[in-house]
């Protein structure tokens, strides 16, 4: 396999969730994290899942990642049932989950080393390409603990992109970062999404972040986890998180969010 063909984009696949229910049994009884959820994600789409904690958005992401199995219903990637994790669907976690015993390049190469048909030289070149894409080409030899929080998440992004997945699953990846770093990363992720045309499913509890990044925003409600509303964001890119148009969208989503959280509050107080 040549470097060109390795860097050439894999055709983005679509994800299909059909009537998925996921329940967990704990000491205090059964919790329904997802209740009969169905959705489709188109090729190259940037989909954001928003909702308060406990609405099952991370659970859904884990099911798509193949790290969790639905209690009932079906989860398909490119029309095929999802049976465990695969390098076609890479995950970026809230905690960077980088391996401290490897340097930056070693981390980015971890998934590549498991990919057959590549020479080590090619693997290194692919890793360098993605480090450059996230603006860390000078930090290949750095140790993880020497990086700032934002740089760690950039390495995690490069590591997730390196095996050239068609779907990128992001689980609140910027939640632990400061506002300034986050704003830079909003710019980066939009630029990278445009450059690499991945299908991205992005989980967040930050409404403004969802409106800034997504083509489409799905609002989840908790107990049990369901899709409550759908919003299409058709603003041009790159989008600025502080723009007025964006604020209008996020206000709309926040209003819907408040709608069902206050209903839930009333029900609880009755």
């Amino acid at each position: 396999m040549s470097l060109e063909s390795e860097l050439a984009n894999a055709r983005a696949e679509r994800i299909e969730i059909i009537g998925v229910t996921k329940s967990f049994t704990t000491d205090r009884g059964t919790v329904v994290a997802l209740d009969n959820v169905s959705l489709k994600v188109a090729e190259g789409e940037f989909l954001c899942l928003v909702g308060p904690s406990g609405c099952g958005k991370s659970t859904l992401l884990n099911i798509i990642a193949g790290l969790d199995e639905p209690t009932s219903g079906r989860a398909l990637a490119a029309g095929q049932p999802i049976q465990g994790p695969g390098r076609d669907r890479m995950v970026m976690f809230q905690e960077h989950a980088l391996f401290p015993w490897l340097d930056v390049t070693g981390n980015v190469m971890f998934g590549l080393r498991l990919k057959t048909g590549l020479s080590n030289k090619e693997r290194r070149e692919v890793a360098e390409y993605y480090l450059q894409l996230v603006g860390l080409e000078k930090f290949g030899r750095a140790n993880i603990h020497e990086l700032s929080g934002g740089m760690k998440q950039r390495v995690a992004l490069a590591r997730a992109l390196a095996p050239n997945p068609s779907v990128l699953l992001m689980d609140e990846p910027f939640a632990a970062l400061d506002a300034l770093t986050r704003e830079q990363l909003y710019g980066d992720i939009q630029r990278i999404w445009e450059a690499r045309r991945k299908t991205i499913i992005f989980v967040t509890h930050n409404v403004r972040e969802a409106a800034c990044l997504g083509d489409r925003v799905l609002l989840f409600s908790p107990n049990p986890g369901r899709i409550q509303a759908e919003f299409h964001i058709s603003l041009p890119r790159p989008r600025d998180i502080n723009s007025v148009e964006l604020a209008r969208h996020s206000t709309e989503i926040t209003a819907a969010l408040k709608g069902f959280t206050s209903t839930a509050g009333r029900q609880a107080s009755e």
Binding site: L67, G86, M90, V91, E95, G111
Partner: peptide, 13 residues
Amino acid sequence: PPIYLRAARTMGS
């Protein structure tokens, strides 16, 4: 941290 195992699994380990 169990997240290492989850991350490794997604990368095919």
